[in-house]
Design a protein around this nucleic acid. Sequence first.
DNA 1: TAGATTGTTAATCGATTAACAATC
DNA 2: TAGATTGTTAATCGATTAACAATC
Lengths: 228, 228
Amino acid sequence: MTKKDEIDKPKPAARAEVEVEGKKIPDAVVKRLSLYARVLEGLDHEGVDKISSAELARRLGLNSSQVRKDLACFGQFGVPGFGYWVRELRHEVHRILGKDREVFVILVGVGNLGAALLSYKGFLKQGFTMLWGFDINPEAATRRGRSPIPIFHVDELDQKLSERPVDMAVLALPAKEAQAVADRLVALGVKAILNFVPIRLTVPPSVHVRHVDLSLELESLSFYLGEE
Amino acid sequence: MTKKDEIDKPKPAARAEVEVEGKKIPDAVVKRLSLYARVLEGLDHEGVDKISSAELARRLGLNSSQVRKDLACFGQFGVPGFGYWVRELRHEVHRILGKDREVFVILVGVGNLGAALLSYKGFLKQGFTMLWGFDINPEAATRRGRSPIPIFHVDELDQKLSERPVDMAVLALPAKEAQAVADRLVALGVKAILNFVPIRLTVPPSVHVRHVDLSLELESLSFYLGEE
DNA sequence: TAGATTGTTAATCGATTAACAATC
DNA sequence: TAGATTGTTAATCGATTAACAATC
C-alpha cells in the first residue's frame, strides 16, 4: 500500500445514504423531499386537487422523470394516465418526512448568529419546537437573543438532555468548541445536527449532519464577479 | 412535440457554469474553491510551506485526484514529485477567486434574518464590505439591526446604486417582493445574489444566484430521525 | 539516480434524463 | 375506446476516483 492510498482511502462517511425497506435513498433525494412538501402544501392551499409529474416538476424547477423517480423511492403514489392527487401525495410526503410528529430542537451557541437564528421567524416551521439554548455565557446570550426560549450554560447540556431527550441540535458556536460539543450531543442521543460552524464535524454514521457555511456561500460567489 | 416535452425542455438555466479561457468550470469546483482558500490560509498561518495533494485533500475532506483535477481547471501550480508551495498556491487561489479586490455588498430586507446576518460577525470576511441595508421600514430595521450600516428605504435602491454600483446583494425579504427586487438589482448591475428567500429567483444567466434555504435544511434533516 | 508526486487520461460511479410498455 | 400519464428500464451525462507516464 502506497502512502497515497493510505491517505485517500479512509474517506469520512462520504455519501450520506439511508435505507428505506432495503433501498438506499440518495441524499439528493432527501434534500428535495422537503421542497416537494412545501410545493404540495402550496398547491393544496391554492385548491389544486390533481397534478401531473410534469406540472409538479415545473413548479419545483426539476425534470418530470426525476419527480417520478424520486417518488418511486418510497412507493407508487400516482394514477397512470391521470397524475397525482395533491392532498394524498402531500400526506404521503409528510409521512415519509416524519412530519406527523413534533421534532424537538436545541440551539448550542447563542452568539451573533445563534441569536439571529432564534429571532428569525421563518427558520422553525410547523412541527419543530426549539426548546432551549445553550451558551458559555447564558446571561449575555439571553439578552442578545431577546430570548424566546430559556438559555442555559453549556455545562448543563448533559443534565437537561437527560431530563428530556431531543432530536436535533443547531450548532452556532466558535469552531474550537464545536467538535467537543458535537461529541457530547451524539452521546446524549441527538440524531441530527444542523451545523453553522465552519469546520467539518466527525460523527458516527447514524447521526446526520448538514453543514451550512454562510461565509463560504458568499465568498464563492465572488468567483463570478467579472474583472474590472 | 408532446406536452411533456414542452414542459420539460425550457429548464431554467440548469447547471451554472462559467468559462475560464474556453474551459467550462463546473459549479461544484467553484464551490470548493473558497474552501481551498480557507484551508490554504490556515496552512500558511501554521507555517506549513509545502503540501502534497494527498495531505491537502485530507484536510479538505476530498480525494487527492479531485484536488489535482480541480486545480488543473485553472493551470499548473504544483511541482511533480514534490507537491505545492502553500504560499504560492494560496495566492493563485486568491487570484482565481478575485480576492485581490474589495467586493461591495448590500443587504435587501433587514427583518429578523437580515438583522441577524448583519450582527453575525463571521458572515463577512476580509475583502467584503457591506455598504447599505434596504428595507420597507428603515427606522424599525435600523433599530432591529443595531445598525452598523445605514439602512435606506427600498425605494432608494435605484438612487443609491446609481451613485455607486455594487457587486453583490444579500436577499432576506418577504417572498412576495423578492423577484421584483431581484429584477431591479439585476437592472442596476448587481452580478451575484445570495438568496435567503425561500423561492426560486429567475435572473439572466450572467447573474449568479446562490440559494440558501435555512428552513429547508432543517426540515430535510427530520427524514433521518428514526421512528418512535 | 531513486523516490515521490504531479497533471492528465481512462475507468467508475451515480445522478439525471429519455423512452416506453403498462394502465387508468 | 382513445388519450394521457404513470412507474420503470435504458441511455446519457457529469462528476469522482484510479491509474500512470512525465518529471522534479
